[in-house]
Design a protein around this nucleic acid. Structure first.
Length: 624
RNA sequence: GCGGGUGUAGCUCAGUUGGUUAGAGUAUCGGCCUGUCACGCCGAGGGUCGCGGGUUCAAGUCCCGUCACUCGCGCCA
């Protein structure tokens, strides 16, 4: 007989009755009836009820066994009597009568309870993640993640992509997010950077002639976190040669639509080939966002021209100053109280906006200060143009175009949530296309890249030379699903002269470009195919499929919101020798912080830090 | 960096206008119980009310500061 098990904890059925079996697992739950004891034995696969009574030598041992101890049970499979059958359990028709038990590992008092769906504070969950991961929901999430990644990989291979690995220790790039830096021992004063994305390398793979690359790529960004943002995350990174934007869309839509349909659990999914394409400017107007949630039926409209001359002075002033007025409909709000509308305004102010105006309409009757000042005739004209009914309210966002769009976008989401208008049970995809190549940087008073500087401008060199930079669009696109940005991608700029020109428009000299991006520029001078790609975020895909509001729920060992690993104590204090090895000296401020932390950890037994941190010699922990 | 929320037993939470010895559930320990599956019943232990300061005869409760976690903004694809 196998040392630990003949079956897993989900395997046994009616047909196994009478078999002598050996099961191993965790003590999930116990029900002690004095003369008879029930133990729910759990492993990765499921739960089997183990029973022991006074005829079994296992009884006294099992009685004393704490929850989450690991045991091996030898016993016999018995059928359960009719009333005792548990229909909720796949193994519910049988139980294992325990003859003997071997204790593999005794559990002490638990910091959180595995057999409960109770919500625990995240710091407790993350510090004891190995226990947390035993719980049904997170365990299922991590397994879903595994299946999603396997499916993505297979689908990419089916599409003719090959998987490659790219370096983790790379060069720092001044573009984009802050890098995680790694000091170099062999090269004093120099640093590696962890990849924000394998951007350069995947493009170089195209230059190297591999044609279709993909990778389940780890990416790192040293920026502040959000519920849907982790400092380390995985992307389905891919790149293709000799393709147009359309080719990229046709390659990836079946992969995403396919994997979502596979794991959507009954939810509907936008079909491959039917992802709507929404130009960036249209998205900003109609949805007030470049990642619109298309489950939300509300559409924003621009009504600026109605308020050029209006009795409503505030809007007239904003419009006169070049601002815009955007509106979000609030359909069928005839029964909503004044408080509903005032609360929306309070919410907008709390979010840092100037305020959210509103008009009520109940049975055709307009209400609210804007309607009063603007006049019934003006309001009717406005409503007719927008196609609104006699019970539809209207929220107003006014200000500079960017602010008005942003407020309208936030209000669109808020109104739809309040009125419960968001369609359920579906995944709605879209492409956001035609991103502007450049934007006006208000702080630096100059033109700058609005997104990725390595995207090909639409119209290429001719556009750069002849058009207003702010009117130039890029072959750049995002995939959005239910309001989450799943990926961004582009047809790359593979022509050095166009790249120099684009950087010149953004105020960078050829020397600066050469200094920062010499590797790629050199490559493009030695025969580069036109190429493009994208990189859907895997954590976000799993998060959507698992219907989780937080990315950490689908990562086995996530960092907390301050980018710490509460279980292993990262980032940790390192000893002086390690610092010397990599030619690093701490600033006075850093040294002070380290000393304070060491003192605090030495005295504070409630500290989250592990004992390892306290060892000044640094020789106590790890596997080195 | 900024704003919101939270912080009371190992864990989840309650705690009134400031007023007796800070409660419940769960976990743990002890006792009872032969058919439960969130088993049930009886009992016990377990508290620096995040921390520091202040107001007061009296603070979990009010005020100031601070720390931690979290959500959002800034930042970031």
């Amino acid at each position: 007989m196998h040392a630990y098990r003949t079956h897993n904890c989900a395997a046994l059925r009616q047909s196994d009755v009478g078999e002598t079996v050996r099961l191993s697992g965790w003590v999930h739950n116990k029900r002690d009836h004095g003369g008879v004891l029930f133990v729910d034995l759990r492993d990765h696969y499921g739960i089997t009820q183990v029973v022991a009574d006074s005829d079994s030598e296992a009884l006294p041992l099992l009685e004393k066994m704490r929850l989450e101890s690991v045991v091996t049970i030898d016993g016999v499979v018995k059928a359960r009597d009719g009333a005792a059958v548990n229909a909720n359990l796949p193994t519910g028709a049988i139980e294992v009568f325990a003859r003997s038990v071997e204790v593999q590992s005794r559990a002490e008092d638990l910091p959180l309870i595995v057999n409960s769906a109770e919500d625990y504070p995240e710091d407790v969950r993350l510090k004891y993640r190995f226990v947390d991961l035993r719980r049904e929901r997170v365990h299922a999430n991590i397994m879903l993640r595994n299946r999603v990644i396997t499916s993505l990989r297979n689908r990419m291979i089916e599409q003719g992509f090959s998987e490659f690995q790219t370096p983790i220790l790379g060069a720092s790039s001044p573009e984009g997010a802050r890098d995680y830096l790694v000091p170099s021992r062999l090269h004093p004063g120099r640093f590696y950077a962890l990849p924000q994305a394998p951007q350069m390398f995947k493009q170089l793979l195209m230059v190297a002639g591999f044609d279709r690359y993909f990778q389940i790529a780890p990416c790192f960004r040293d920026e502040d976190l959000r519920a849907d943002r982790s400092p380390e995350f995985y992307q389905l990174d891919f790149e293709m040669s000799f393709v147009t934007q359309e080719d990229v869309f046709q390659a990836i839509e079946p992969v995403l639509a396919g994997v979502f349909a596979e794991f959507a659990n009954g939810k509907s999914v936008t079909s491959a080939g039917e992802f709507p394409r929404i130009p960036y400017r249209e998205a900003m107007l109609k949805y007030g966002s470049d990642k619109p949630d298309l489950r939300n039926p509300l559409i924003i409209s621009d009504v600026t021209d109605h308020f050029e001359t209006s009795g409503f002075g505030l809007f007239e002033k904003i419009v006169g100053g070049g601002g815009r007025v955007r509106v979000v409909p609030a359909p069928d709000t005839q029964d909503k109280s004044r408080k509903f509308f005032d609360d929306m305004n309070d919410w907008a102010r709390k979010e840092g906006f100037a305020g959210l105006g509103y008009v009520t309409r109940k049975g055709g009757e307009f209400g609210g200060p804007i309607a009063k000042n603007h006049g019934t005739e003006g309001m009717e004209k406005l409503y007719a143009e927008l196609g609104l009914g006699e019970n539809d309210g209207l929220f107003f966002a006014a200000g500079k175009e960017k602010d008005a769009a942003k407020l309208a976008g936030a209000a669109r989401t808020r109104v739809a949530e309040e009125l419960d208008l968001i369609e359920k049970g579906c995944f709605k995809f879209c492409w956001i296309v035609d991103f502007p190549m450049f934007e006006w940087d208000e702080d630096l008073k100059k033109v700058d890249f609005s997104h990725n500087p390595f995207s090909m401008p639409q119209g290429e060199m001719e556009a750069l030379e002849s058009k207003d930079p702010l009117d130039i669009l890029a072959w750049q696109y995002d995939i959005v699903c239910n309001g989450y940005e799943l990926s961004s991608g582009a047809i790359r700029n593979h022509k050095p002269e166009i790249m120099y020109k684009a950087f010149e428009i953004a105020g960078y000299s050829q020397e600066e470009v050469d200094a920062n991006f010499s590797g790629m520029i050199e490559a493009f001078k030695l025969g580069a195919p036109p190429h493009g790609g994208s990189a859907p975020g895997i954590d976000r895909i799993v998060m959507l499929l698992a219907d989780e509001p937080n990315i950490r729920e689908v990562i086995a060992f996530p960092l907390n919101q301050r980018a710490q690993d509460l279980m292993m104590g990262a980032p940790s204090i390192v000893d002086a020798k390690q610092l010397r090895d990599v030619h690093i000296q701490l600033s006075p401020k850093a040294r002070e912080a380290v000393e304070q932390a060491s003192d605090a950890e030495a005295t504070d037994m409630n500290s989250n830090a592990t004992a390892r941190d306290q060892s000044p010699e640094g020789d106590a922990g790890g596997e080195s």
